[in-house]
Design a binder for these strands. Sequence first.
DNA 1: AATACCTCCAACCGCAAGCAG
DNA 2: CCTGCTTGCGGTTGGAGGTAT
Length: 194
Amino acid sequence: MDKKPCIFQETEVRKGPWTMEEDLILINYIANHGEGVWNSLARSAGLKRTGKSCRLRWLNYLRPDVRRGNITTEEQLLIMDLHAKWGNRWSKIAKHLPGRTDNEIKNYWRTRIQKHMKQAETTFTGRISERGNDQASTSNLSGCYPTDHTAESYSPPSFNMGVENFQGPFPHETNDINIWNMEDIWSMQLLNGD
DNA sequence: AATACCTCCAACCGCAAGCAG
DNA sequence: CCTGCTTGCGGTTGGAGGTAT
């Protein structure tokens, strides 16, 4: 990969997946200096990333209060409700779901809810054309909300951001060297001192 | 077992708003 | 007011992992 360091790589901005080292650097830096001007933070921390990238990584992934795991039924309904009110104002919606990020909600909406609604729409309009629209009401969509495993398999309102309880950001733990979890990162961060 | 297809999500991009000089 | 910089937001994409054939 980086076997041939060249002069350009020195100033080159890194893109793509974050490495554990980068995560650690960012966490350590923020732990010591706090969040700030992201561009200068990236530079001062020695990260070859844009401020934007650092901010995104921190907010969506590294922040200690980021809650990971499947969306609960309550959250699901809240998302539906708020989306009906505000539309695609993901950050606004996210503010009402503690620990959830706008990115996560957005992804959830696009991949699950939107899909289900689309399916519902096609079957629904199919039914309408079959037997009239006597059942036509938007509230019918509520019966089509995804109530699949994602909501059922979610364990814990008792979620605790304590390091020992945190399950890590990755849904699938593997032996891959590039895969680490937040427990690793936070414990290493603790070892590195405040 | 191989591979084609699908799903999900982390991360990027572009744009607009806010703010300081 | 204008300009340049930073941040925040929403849309989109690439790729890893899972599933179907």
